[in-house]
């Protein structure tokens, strides 16, 4: 008798997974860099192209790296929030100007306000590839040791900022070299 129930049981199991699958987003790819060192790079700054910015200069600080471009429509929607964030002076935000014409980028910032301490020109997108960027915008949270602790895929929303990014940033800022803070400790980041 029991063996005739096997097909039913197997089917119900599959259906359970399918139900769970409905809640998932198949297009969101988690970054393999979480809790790994941020790839180091050195790039010219958007506003003073002769000066270089090196990522290792940021060691000892918690910072955000926001990947953006003037051709990116979604960046337009998140930008006001980033401008607000920069006024709050909680955490320095750096921009990675991804595959963009520097002139367009500067114009864009002039129109929408500049949220960045500095924007870095990634003209051919090589640093983007190093960071596993697959769409713009993306935002990385990097800790004092230069470890990537979180990545926001797509525009940063007010709720993502308040529930995940900012609490995580505060914890990271309080942490010392001996205490490791992971994003799993912040509820909103799950």
């Amino acid at each position: 008798m029991l063996r005739y129930l096997v097909p039913l049981i197997v089917f119900l199991g599959v259906a359970g997974f399918l139900l769970k699958g409905l809640e998932l987003n198949p297009r969101e790819v988690p970054s393999p860099f979480i809790d790994k060192p941020a790839p180091s790079f050195s790039l010219p700054k958007l506003h003073e192209p002769e000066a270089q910015f090196a990522s290792k200069d940021m060691l000892g600080q918690v910072w955000l790296l926001n990947v953006w471009a003037s051709w990116c429509v979604a960046c337009r929607s998140e930008h006001p929030l980033l401008v607000q964030l920069s006024h709050a002076n909680i955490v320095p935000v750096y921009g990675l100007n991804y595959k963009d014409e520097p002139d367009d980028a500067r114009n864009w910032l002039r129109q929408l306000g500049d949220a960045y301490v500095s924007s870095l020109i990634d003209y051919d997108g090589k640093v983007g590839i190093d960071y596993g960027v697959y769409g713009v915008p993306e935002t990385f949270v990097i800790d004092k040791q230069g470890i990537i602790r979180h990545k926001v895929i797509g525009p940063v929303t007010p709720s993502a900022l308040d529930n995940c990014v900012l609490p995580l940033v505060r914890k990271l800022q309080q942490a010392t070299a001996q205490t490791v803070v992971k994003r799993t400790e912040v509820e909103g980041c799950a």
């Binding site: 790819v29 393999p32 190093d130 596993g132």
Partner: peptide, 8 residues
């Protein structure tokens, strides 16, 4: 590639 984008 996997290092940057994961097994995906």
């Amino acid at each position: 590639m996997v290092e940057r984008y994961g097994d995906f």
